[in-house]
Design a protein around this nucleic acid. Structure first.
Lengths: 354, 354
DNA sequence: AGTATTTGTGTGTACGCACACAAATACTAC
DNA sequence: GTAGTATTTGTGTGCGTACACACAAATACT
């Protein structure tokens, strides 16, 4: 049968001291004489004492508040709804362990909203922060303040180099480009030209896009057979459908041979709509299971979606801070999440389980 | 700020009864007069009382034992190591909540070992059982005993119809065949013949294989363009490499045009070895991230692996029983897990995170 | 009416830990 | 020696729940 759990009382008896002294040794609090301290430490080691997290959390009451700062998901089923869901779920499970999650949101169209919410968080003096650093400049200012206040923070979804974040939880951007290239090329003939399409509003964390593109090009370079596939890059600085449509028209007229498109953001569905409207037979791959992409996958107008485990990202971020705060264990500085490859046939599972 | 948690005391005050009475109502234990019962129920509803699982688990001590019965994973990194790992991980998280997991293993080459271990479990009278029912006949006998003893059980990885299992946690077999077909066909030309290869020892749960094959054929029938792809089925009743090699040789000589192979078990790596040895350029898809398959993916001799979230299966099974025993919530009778599509480029992630 | 039995309700303790406070001991200066 | 302070150690209580027990009230049975 499973051996009885060792408690503080057991340690106290074994070391012939009181529970209070054991407590003092364990928490490095208060004064304890040398020999008793040693006795307790020996007892802890010999009996292999592990504190009961349950009892600890119960005794400590709700101690830890962590704040998250994500882009707002609007309408509800857009991408950022998913990490949010994961974080909420993890927080729900850990609520009983004394973790309280306070979520803040900023608008992707408005840097000032980021600053505003960041300041709110600073004022709250939380015990930890989860940040999606899509606005680089503002994020750096924010985490500097966090560092001053000695508040640990993790990056999620994207990262900023050379920061003192406890961990980065998100995709390996370069590799996601690599995977996209592999999938796209599996349906192309040698020599078919492809297009990398960056649809962004311009102010977001662009190092991620650079990495994705590099990964994509790396694959084609490493695996060229016979003929090279020409790779074009097009940047569209707007998420407005009509602007995208116009830019695409301009581009396709000049590049009529394009056979595959890789959209580096979650906007593949807009491109899919364009292809359908103009009856273009072009393979299409994009990121993230947002509503538009889901529909297009089902219709067949998008061939592949690479999903970056958004729910898991949120959940992991919360758990990472939990481990740090309650367990007091340091997390791995980089935690890449799985890249799920989604096609029409396995789509349902990813929807069900999130 | 977060509203204070409602406790039993709060309910007691609100309903003007004692904590003991509240407890009796909540646990449907002991006699409570009609009006007080109603008052308590109202209070629970109005204040939205959720019992603190922490305190509950602490007060109840270790109460629940669940047993698992899986095939043994031998050597360590074979398939069944993964569900085991997931189950262990989940059990570790839930240990403090009073769940104890006792794992049993049977040999896939020996039905009697199954019976033996099953009997051990029956004797233990656990509070729940997790079963991988690969031997159908023996499994039915086992679960009948479980039903007699009123012990809830879940199936994992495979299922047996018309049983009173609390839940099935595993892949949608038919759909996994469908996905395999989709992937394989994406690299084939119309008319290319394909092969479905069942490599089994013969005594295992075969309904799963039937389902997989049906899904595979369904895809080709539903999506035929121009010319039909002929689909052959070959059954090899051995997992021995030389037998497989001999059977494959025989088959390929008679069917030299085969361009794609779908191995319905985890033995794709053996086929990959054969292809390499004889310099055959044949697309290959199989199941499960076992060691052999991992190597072949890396070398490129297997093109795709469909992974059925084995770790998640183990974890979910444990959590399902936990929810039933501690939370007292009935699980969904069928819990399909995601089908992960793995290629060389995203392989690392699935290895890291399991 | 008196006793036995059932039914309803409140109180108290344990679970393992954290933390406050009291008690005991050691140390100082006179 | 004593009084006073500093240091070390022990005890007790609370966190929210489960459950045993005590006891009162209501009902049943002689």
């Amino acid at each position: 049968m499973s051996t009885k759990r060792i408690t503080i009382q057991d340690i106290a008896r074994y070391a012939k001291v009181s529970a209070g002294t054991v407590d003092r040794v364990i928490h490095k609090r208060g004064k304890v004489s040398g020999d008793k301290k040693k006795k307790v430490e020996d007892a802890v080691r010999e009996l292999d004492f592990n504190p009961n997290l349950l009892a600890r959390a119960l005794a400590m009451k709700n101690q830890f508040t962590v704040c998250s700062l994500f882009p707002q998901s609007f309408p509800e089923n857009e991408y950022w709804h998913l990490p949010k869901q994961g974080a909420e779920q993890a927080a729900g499970e850990l609520k009983d362990f004394g973790l309280f999650l306070d979520m803040f949101y900023y608008s992707l169209f408005d840097e000032s909203s980021f600053i505003e919410q960041a300041n709110k968080i600073i004022e709250l003096k939380p015990d930890g922060v989860i940040l999606a650093p899509l606005f680089v400049k503002e994020s750096i200012l924010f985490v500097q303040k966090l560092e001053e206040a000695n508040i640990p923070y993790v990056f999620i979804d994207a990262t900023i180099p050379d920061r003192k974040n406890i961990s980065y939880i998100g995709p390996d951007a370069r590799r996601s480009g690599f995977v996209a290239a592999k999938l796209l090329r599996s349906t192309l003939h040698p020599g078919d030209p492809v297009l990398i399409l960056n649809i962004v509003k311009g102010m977001e964390n662009s190092s991620t896009l650079t990495q994705i593109e590099r990964g994509f090009r790396d694959y084609f370079e490493k695996n060229l057979i016979f003929v090279k596939n020409p790779i074009n890059t097009l940047i569209i600085n707007s998420t407005d459908e009509s602007v995208i449509s116009q830019e695409l028209t301009k581009f396709y007229i000049r590049n009529p041979l394009i056979k595959g498109v890789f959209v580096t953001t979650s906007k593949a569905h807009v491109v899919a709509g364009f292809h359908q409207k103009h009856e273009l037979d072009i393979r299409l791959i994009g990121f993230d299971l947002v509503d538009g992409n889901i529909n297009c996958l089902q219709e067949g107008s998008i061939d592949w979606i690479i999903s970056q485990s958004p729910v898991q990202q949120g959940a992991r971020a919360v758990k990472t801070l939990f481990d740090l705060l309650i367990h007091k264990t340091a997390p791995k500085p980089v935690q890449y999440v799985p890249l799920d490859i989604i096609i029409r046939e396995n789509l349902d599972f990813y929807l069900d389980f999130q």
